[in-house]
Every structure is written in structure tokens, then in C-alpha cells.
Amino acid sequence: MAFQHKHILGIESLSREDIELILNTGDAFKEINGRDIKKVPTLRGKTIINAFFEASTRTRLSFEIAGKRLSADTVNISGSTSSVVKGETLEDTAKNIEAMAPDIIVIRHGHSGAPHYLAERLETCSVVNAGDGAHEHPSQALLDLMTMREHKGRIEGLEVAIVGDITHSRVARSNIYALSKMGARVRLAGPGTMLPPGIERLGNVEVCANLLDAIKDADVVMMLRIQLERQSQTLLPSLREYARFYGLNTENIKLAKEDAIVMHPGPMNRGVEISTYVADGIQNVILDQVANGVAVRMALLYLVSGVESMQTQ
């Protein structure tokens, strides 16, 4: 089956078959990352711009490594070094980039919808969403699914708890879409100030009253990062209380299935949403997520580049 999407804007617009193809392709690419010479010529001559208008270390690095292992030329620009600070509009910035004929723009932006805005206005290059506001973070959800499948052998039928600040989380939204499409069930928990209205309509979602209900008998427990910078607002009384009611620790993790895996999209606040003992515990697959991130991003870059359809012709 050929991949039909020019852009990867979100999981919402992908089908179950698309997701399976991406995961299978990611599995195939994963082997390259273990080789002595970690490079294949697949995207040789392709140019990939990583345009990160919002701070990111892990995702940017992961996309950059993914591009380089496929032999693409990768160039990074960030919000602080781009013309955005000089008052240029996003459209102008993007069109200037496009005039230099890149093949793919990977964009991270603080405004929800920014990748869609670019996809509508750019004529030739593909847009890959690396996280837009509180909307979607498709490559994160895909690497999460890849990791779940690796450890659980399947996604269908899994009970997945996602805990934390759902309101501001693009990771939660993309995972809800992806897991629902693949036949898993999602349980959400978080402070009342961080559960947005109508979230259950996004997929196969149950909003739980508390952390314990969410993780009871779960196959996967995914803890979201609590944004320390939001503390000045009205959403939480203290991190101490957050840790007590919504933090994962060696006691409450026992409610989950014995073989449950613990995930976190990073960066972690140890002692807040996740205790150090759980973060480093036997159930944690957090670094597997990071490793799979490179493979799944290689798959995304490869599939949107259209190289696959050229080869099959």
C-alpha cells in the first residue's frame, strides 16, 4: 500500500492503515540504528528543514538524526535565530524557506494550527508537524504506539492510562486519536483544572475521577509532564499536592497490571508527576520511547518524501 499523504499534520487525518504502515516502516528502519555504520542512502539529495519556533531539544535532535541517517541534508532553524523576531510573518518565513527548494519542512510551533497554515500556503514541500500548541504531536504518538506494540505485542484491546495536564497536552490528543483508531481504550486523569470539556469525544476515552481509577489494571501508564512554568497561574495549588494526588509512585503503580509499562514523553520532573523509583524502575520504557522516536521519524520522512512510490513504479 502506498502512502497517500503529502503532509503529516496530525493523527486525526490518518487512517488505521496509515498508522500501521508507519509503524511497520519504523520497525524496519530501527535495525539501521543498531548498525555500525548508521546510514542508508534513501533520502540522498533531499533537503529537510527543521523549523522549531518553540524550544525543543529531544524532538529536534530526533528529527535531525532521523534525516541524517537517511542521508538527507538537514538544516535547523529556531525561533530565536529566525526572522520571526524581526517581525516577519510565518507565511513569509515559510515562503522564503520554500524558495530555497527544501523537500520537507518539519515544524514545531507554539500556535495550534501553524502546520496547517503552512500546508495551505506552501506549494511544493511537505509539512511534518513536530508539535503545534495544544493541538497535536503526531510523531510522539507514533513512537508511543511503536513502543507499546514492541512491549505488548499488540495495541488492540490495551488499556492505556494518560495522566496529567490534558488541557495543554498535544501528546494526549495525538495519543487519544492514535490509540482509538488502533482499538485501544484510553483512560484520562488529571486535576479538574486540566481536563478540557468534550475530550471524551475525541475517541475511545473515559475520563476518570482520579489517578487510581485510571491506572487500575492498566496495560500502559503514560505520565505527562507538568509544566512548571504554569505554576504562576491558577491551575494548581502546589507541586507538592500535585505529586501527592497525580504523581506515579511505587505504591500506586501496583494497581496497574503486573506487567504494565510506564511511559513519559519527557522531559521528566522527577518527584512531581513520576517518582524516581518508578522512572528508573523495571516497568519503565522511557528510553525505548526515545530510541523508537528516531525510527518512527525516519519512517515519516521516508513516507512523505514520496521515495517509496517512486521505487515501486
Binding site: S112, G113, A134, H135, P197, R201
Partner: peptide, 13 residues
């Protein structure tokens, strides 16, 4: 508007 659509689009309601 705050509601299911703002939640879906990730926009502040």
C-alpha cells in the same frame, strides 16, 4: 468558544 471544538483544535477557550 470553550467546548468540544476548542478542545479538539487545541485552542484556548
Amino acid at each position: 468558544n470553550e467546548g468540544p471544538v476548542s478542545t479538539e483544535l487545541g485552542l484556548k477557550g
